[in-house]
Amino acid sequence: MATIIDVPEEKILHVNNFEFTYAGSDVPNIKKLSMPIAKNCVTALIGPSGCGKTTLLRSFNRMHDLYPGNKYAGEVLFEGRNILDVKEDLITLRTKIGMIFQKPTAFPMSIFDNVAYGLRLQGMKNRSELNDRVEKSLKDAAIWNEVSTRLKQDANGLSGGQQQRLCIARAIAVEPEILLFDEPTSALDPISTQGIEILVSELKERVSIVIVTHNMQQAARVSDYTGFMYLGELIELGQTEELFVTPKEKLTEEYITGKFG
């Protein structure tokens, strides 16, 4: 049924027969899904609303555990172990697998404190070390020039696009292995969106990226691999160019040509 290629690169995550069931649901919302996530690449997940792409993404850092009653099955292998294991230390896992959300989520604190937040959680107290890491992260997130003179100001004073880049700086400050992007530009204007997209392409040098997007052009622009999901199943995973130009599956073709969605 499904066409899922293997990736030549090293795999940072390996999803095996993964199933996910929301609390109160009788049937799995994601069914028997298997896919590799390539290291230092951008993998995009596309598909119509409700196909399970965000649900899958939020399984990779166990976000679903915040709400009781959700159930996982199968495997997601990371660093040689199944992170779905009940014994998995979620606090450490989440520092290694960061996340960027649909809307900018600047914390109610200063710009500096926002970026330093994850570092402080890990116990970093040394002022100069913190300064260095915050500056480096803000530079890497291409927002340093805009905020360097007002690091002590409330982060909520920044524009939406700036806030989202601040959130990216905050996420990369703790040097994660993987960054999960959940429709990161859905609340942004076209120019801010372009800025985030450029950033995503640059960041993959250092971190593996999985991005969920409702925007097929975005997937085509930023990703190396694209997975198309439909009704809780992965229909096709391929190199982005191939998937958009010569899809192997009829459903994929119908979706990318706009027959439904």
Partner: peptide, 26 residues
Amino acid sequence: PDILKESAYALGATKWDVVKNIIIPY
């Protein structure tokens, strides 16, 4: 907002971290 709390959890915060640093200030 849930999304704000989730962002803190996504950085490895504990419940108390979230209450102290996110919910109470917000």
